[in-house]
Simulated assay, not measured.
Amino acid sequence: MYKILANTIFLGKDVHFLPDCHSTNDIALQMVRKSQAKEGTIVICGHQTSGKGQRGNVWVSEAGKNLTMSLVLKPDFLDISEQFFLNMSIAIGIRSFLDDYIPNAKVKWPNDIVVPGFGKIGGVLIENILTGSSWEYSVVGIGINVNQISFSNPKATSLAKISQNNFDLNELFRLIITRIEQSYLKLKKGKIHEIRREYLSHLYLLNQKAAFQSDGNEFLGEIQGVDDSGKLQIADETRGLREFDLKEVVFLE
């Protein structure tokens, strides 16, 4: 179904399409460990039955309606301490792609893609393969809700639900991979300050008062930014600036 891409430099020159699979990330990781994948390899699935999301959640996707895939990258030009810049790069590539179809898509820290007023439209899960201080590979799992209309999660949405249009998945696959590659190459050229600036300019709830929860305690605060290691910086109304790692803070919405 999905063919090798002609309009990219390295991403999508090796495409593996599976009608059904449990998790594209798991399959891509297995391929990397067996030396069956290289940088640019893409595993894409028509129906993913056990897709993985952030915080151990499951990504539920209706068969044949959405884009669920994993990209194999080798970002060894980054220091291990700079892992979150890869997250930023992928997220802004996806968000840029969505700009052509729907307005005002935002990146919800760390890697959800949301449309305010509608809900979550996509997500990213990056699993890194590290050997000591060396970065071997990264497997970038991406899920984008495209033509699915009904969701068990009321906070989920899709391109079709927002725009009232139906989309060609093959065409969207080609376009989203092009945007991701452009963003990744910008990172590879060392333009991390540009990547950070773009990420922050589209960060959900940046400088807006909102409710959060940490260690079972609710608080009001404003997101101020993200540090180099990927920690979310929130100005707590009562405790001042605080930093949170993954799973340490929950958005209350």
Rank of each mutant, 00 (worst) to 15 (best):
Ser96Asn: 15
Arg197Gln: 11
Pro116Val: 08
Thr131Gln: 15
Thr157Pro: 01
Leu246Tyr: 13
Asn7Ala: 08
Ser214Lys: 07
Leu220Ser: 14
Arg197Ala: 05
Leu185Trp: 01
Lys189Leu: 04
Phe212Trp: 13
Ser138Arg: 03
Glu194Lys: 01
Pro116Cys: 04
Arg242Ser: 15
Ser23Val: 10
Tyr204Leu: 04
Lys106Leu: 11
Leu11Asp: 01
Thr131Gly: 13
Ala105Arg: 02
Lys231Glu: 11
Asp228Glu: 15
Gly143Phe: 08
Gly216Gln: 11
Asn57Asp: 13
Ala160Asp: 06
Ile80His: 01
Asp76Ser: 10
Tyr184Trp: 12
Ser89Gln: 04
Ser96His: 15
Gly12Cys: 06
Leu78Tyr: 07
Asp245Asn: 15
Asn128Thr: 12
Lys191Met: 04
Cys45Asn: 04
Val72Ala: 10
Gln164Ile: 00
Ala63Cys: 09
Trp109Asn: 09
Arg174Cys: 11
Gln54Cys: 06
Ala105Pro: 15
Ile129Trp: 00
Gln48Asp: 10
Asn104Cys: 07
Cys45Gly: 02
Leu246Lys: 07
Ser61Ala: 14
Asp215Glu: 13
Asn170Gly: 14
Ser201Cys: 07
Asn166Tyr: 12
Leu252Arg: 15
Leu86Cys: 04
Phe118Pro: 00
Leu5Glu: 10
Gly51Phe: 08
Ser158Arg: 09
Pro75Lys: 01
Gln213Glu: 15
Tyr184Asn: 03
Ile192Val: 05
Pro19Ser: 03
Leu185Met: 15
Ile142Cys: 06
Val115Arg: 05
Val60Ile: 14
Ile42Gln: 10
Phe118His: 14
Pro75Ala: 02
Ile180Ala: 01
Asp245Val: 11
Phe77Leu: 05
Gly225His: 07
Val249Leu: 07
Asp245Lys: 13
Lys52Asn: 09
Arg174Lys: 15
Ser214Ile: 10
Cys45Trp: 06
Ala37Lys: 05
Asn153Lys: 07
Ile42Ala: 11
Gly12His: 03
Met69Cys: 14
Leu11His: 00
Ser214Tyr: 09
Phe118Ala: 10
Tyr101Ser: 07
Gln164Met: 08
Tyr101Phe: 15
Gly119Pro: 09
Ser133Val: 02
Leu187Val: 02
Phe10Ala: 05
Asn57Trp: 09
Ile223Val: 15
Lys186Trp: 04
Pro103Tyr: 03
Gln48Ser: 07
Met31Lys: 14
Leu130Arg: 14
Phe151Lys: 11
Lys65His: 11
Arg95Asn: 11
Val32Pro: 10
Arg95Ile: 00
Lys65Ile: 06
Ile113Ala: 08
Glu222Leu: 10
Ser70Asp: 03
His16Glu: 04
Val58His: 06
Leu220Gly: 12
Ala235Met: 10
Ser158Pro: 12
Glu127Ile: 08
Ser96Gly: 10
Leu185Gln: 09
